[in-house]
Design a protein around this nucleic acid. Sequence first.
DNA 1: GGCTGCTATTGATCTGCGTCAATCATCCCG
DNA 2: CGGGATGATTGACGCAGATCAATAGCAGCC
Lengths: 237, 237
Amino acid sequence: MKAFLAAIESNGQSCGDCAVRPFSICASLDKAEMQEFEHLSRHARFASCETVFAEEEITVSFYNVLEGVMRLYKLLPDGRRQIVGFALPGDFIGMTVSGRNNFSADAISDVEVCRFSKASFQRFAEDKPHLLRRINEMAIRELALAREHMVLLGRRSAEEKVATFLISWRDRLARQKGASATLPLPMSRQDIADYLGLTIETVSRTFTKLERDGVIEIISGGVRLLDPARAEALAAA
Amino acid sequence: MKAFLAAIESNGQSCGDCAVRPFSICASLDKAEMQEFEHLSRHARFASCETVFAEEEITVSFYNVLEGVMRLYKLLPDGRRQIVGFALPGDFIGMTVSGRNNFSADAISDVEVCRFSKASFQRFAEDKPHLLRRINEMAIRELALAREHMVLLGRRSAEEKVATFLISWRDRLARQKGASATLPLPMSRQDIADYLGLTIETVSRTFTKLERDGVIEIISGGVRLLDPARAEALAAA
DNA sequence: GGCTGCTATTGATCTGCGTCAATCATCCCG
DNA sequence: CGGGATGATTGACGCAGATCAATAGCAGCC
């Protein structure tokens, strides 16, 4: 058992050659801090559809996403689901005030994370203003995204929702791997629906309509943006 | 002109007897810091319906709300509005990453604020980990509220939306002035509609329905919670 | 008191999206 | 290759909430 755990939870390569460092909170650390920080983390992997943590559980770890995509969501008692975001490499998740997770997270693709115990992370961060400012900055950025999403959920039509989703997904991927008209969509239609406050049928119909209108082409595992300008117009207005 | 400005923008009473201190970011400051901090702030007042700042403007100030209620909202180009939150005494607003406001704010009632210039505030906060942690904590709390609100906007019925709004408004006021079954609602029906992603007519009809069902009584300037348990049940499920 | 303006309520009707159900496309696995 | 699982698409229909329109309250003001 111990060997098994060691296999799935290891330090892997060092932070020195970490691909997501410039995007993550680690970008704020200097060399010495980095070395200390490295000892606090353990790599972990999750297969597609595995749960990483659940809402309301006591928070024991924070996570830095290294690879893959996770869905972050909240459930109502009757099972209705709202996806509050997708986590990509570089995202730092798990911070709470209450000490309990305020959403659930599971892997959409195979996922690799850097895991920190909450206690040791907090001890490390306590007196490092530059790290605190960095975390702050990321929280404020998240907050701005959350508010954008409120507008989408409260005030936009199905077609606008889907177009906005495609454009902002494209822009998010572009920041990581450079711009491309071909968008991989690792999440299911159901995930997209729960993210946009729609049903799976409406998402499907809207994709079809956008394809009929020549805005996109639906391909296996994603979408090709044929008319980005038109999509952007739908997303803006 | 100078005298006029002095009249509307003064330090007023000192932070020493500030009523919202325990709720605000200032709670993290010690006595000496407090004194320094006091010199950075200017009191300002806004009449009901006055704009405090607008989305996309360059952020020049941060605000601590001392008294009154503000609505924080985003507009789509065609005028559709989403209220992303209401600010109450103790709330700290204005933090951005981009340097531009990511929402507009105007006074719903007469409002009194503590205003800080962005630059001097940032200089002051720079190397104060306890203050940074406090700001962090508030940002994370905001984020949790924002995610709660996404669930409401994306997945709840009109009746659930209104009930949830009333219950969480009650709880928020309770934290400030103690519990009460009589809820003042300083915002208009239109504001409530734009907060909940509904129309004014639907909000009005839902209030009426809740009154018919004996859950609330609609009174001038607010609502009385006749059956809090029933309202909570609607808000939960 | 009566007029004006504004917000809230109520009613009638419409419609975008949800619901229910059938079919299709992929992929796996024997 | 065929069968069965799973997810996506399409169609028919219904309804919650939007839209359009007509009062109703109510405060301010002459």
